[in-house]
Design a protein around this nucleic acid. Structure first.
Lengths: 148, 148
DNA sequence: ACTATATAGTTAGATATCGAACTTAAGGAG
DNA sequence: CTCCTTAAGTTCGATATCTAACTATATAGT
């Protein structure tokens, strides 16, 4: 399979970029803030309203166990509120707190210089193409996973 | 003006794909084998000869602490041999064992059906373009990190 | 209504990962 | 030769992540 090495290189590049981007992000964040936690804050602020842990786990492609772990820490830091779902006693509803909104703003400001520099140095037209291709690949892998 | 959301979406896609690919890889691996460990085996087999832990850490863009952790487990499983560097008493030399070579082959066979299916369903010409763009992005981020 | 199955979350145990602090060894400046 | 700085690895404590097993609740089939 001469094509295997192409796929392998692709996933390898993707893995390294994910690693570099995440590490850089967390290096400039306020102490204790992680990409996973920021992603939760961002999701709740942008999409609004309370969400169930499972819905967020699905949105971020992580397991519910992972989401449970992250939310426990976020609730301890009072970045989110977690209440029982009144419509379903099995479920919970998570929402961002005022403290969470404030920290999200701080995070966005902290990463801004990097984003600005990257925007200047990377060809944005190329990035448009890239993100489109990545979306195709991501959708395929997700579908493939479900049907395997 | 700098389109932060475009960069954000790009890194988000990359993070999700890295996650999906790694999880799938480890799901089909022999018990206990991880992507990190396979990567070490592959590196030693393909490039040959003993390598220092630090050199591999740099090659994979992880910290030496991470490499130390992974190598400890691999040595315990006898997938690699680790000896002191006779030229430098601070350093070590890592090489793959026969057991490591054998397991690497098993891993490659295990992921083959996935690679084959993906090769069939993904447009390989698109993948060629994609991997090229990813390489550009990765090189930029790596350079940017060093010079920041 | 009862029972079987499905769903939402948690917990346990494992690996990978980071940064920071530490140990030991090498190399260079006086 | 001694001292200071750099370099290679390890250790520690933390987070994220997975799978597997568990609890509790909801829903469906008979």
């Amino acid at each position: 399979m001469p094509d295997a090495s192409l796929l392998f290189r692709t996933f390898n590049e993707i893995g390294i970029i994910a690693q570099l981007a995440q590490t850089r992000f967390e290096a400039v964040m306020p102490t204790g803030m992680t990409l996973a936690q920021f992603t939760v804050l961002n999701h709740l602020v942008r999409l609004g309203g309370p969400k169930s842990p499972l819905a967020m786990a699905n949105a971020f492609q992580v397991t519910k166990a992972t989401m449970s772990s992250t939310l426990t820490r976020m609730e301890a830091k009072k970045l989110v509120s977690v209440i029982p779902n009144p419509k379903d006693a099995r479920g919970k509803l998570v929402d961002v707190t005022e403290a969470g909104r404030t920290i999200r703003e701080t995070c966005i400001k902290a990463i801004e210089p990097d984003l600005k520099r990257w925007s200047i140095n990377l060809k944005l037209s190329d990035m448009e193409v890239l993100v489109g291709q990545l979306a195709v690949l991501r959708l395929y892998l997700d579908k493939d996973r479900a049907n395997r």
